[in-house]
Design a protein around this nucleic acid. Structure first.
Lengths: 109, 109
DNA sequence: CAATCGCATAAGTGACTGCTTATGTTTCCT
DNA sequence: AGGAAACATAAGCAGTCACTTATGCGATTG
């Protein structure tokens, strides 16, 4: 029951690792090259690349090649599966679901 | 960099497993005993108990003993670390952060 | 009291994960 | 062209994870 590969599952699985969340958080402060991220964290460059690959496959991140540098940036739409999952359990915050839905409607960008 | 045991980390890690999310989703439809959950899913009773223990340690679930039955229910406040984490990256939805914060304020229950 | 039920914990196992050190490829610099 | 820089991929390894079966304990039933 563990091998399901939905996009939702990939998002949750990608964000489950603290290093990956730290990298993602770092990217929210602006686009960055792999080299920069490698310098910020105390893990090897291949480890960073692997984390970025996982984030990308989850749709949370996009990359852009420029010369010999690979720049990664957050992909806001990639958060939708996570937010949709939260919003799905409206039974627990029904009074506020209208505001939440407005938020979700305008989140695309 | 993997051993951090923050509550945020536990929440993400707890929700990373599809079986655990399925159990959690099942609990959103109402309180249930371990026996009921074991009947709904095709995994053993110990597996269900272990998943519930993980959800409980993450604060996502509460339990209640009544006789020889253990009833589990969703703990809405447990979602806060997840929602707070999302809200933390306001740079990507700054225009709507006010509504989001109102939502978070009233979420406790 | 004896047997069963409901649940948690223990112990073991196969699969997966996150990390490392190579290694290869493309791009830039001199 | 030669060498270094930036990145991705490969291969290997230790730790973790989710699951199983086995067992123990308290509560219920007969």
């Amino acid at each position: 029951m563990t091998g399901t590969a939905t996009i939702e599952n990939k998002v949750f699985q990608a964000l489950a690792d603290p290093s990956r969340r730290a990298i993602f958080e770092s990217l929210t402060r602006g686009e960055a090259a792999v080299k920069d991220l490698t310098a910020r964290f105390s893990i090897s460059q291949p480890a960073v690349s692997q984390h970025l690959a996982a984030l990308k496959e989850a749709g949370l991140v996009d990359d852009r090649r420029e010369g010999r540098c690979a720049y990664y940036r957050v992909r806001p739409r990639g958060m939708r599966p996570l937010i949709d999952w939260i919003a799905h359990y409206r039974a627990f915050w029904v009074e506020h679901i209208d505001r939440l839905e407005q938020l979700l409607e305008n989140l695309d960008g």
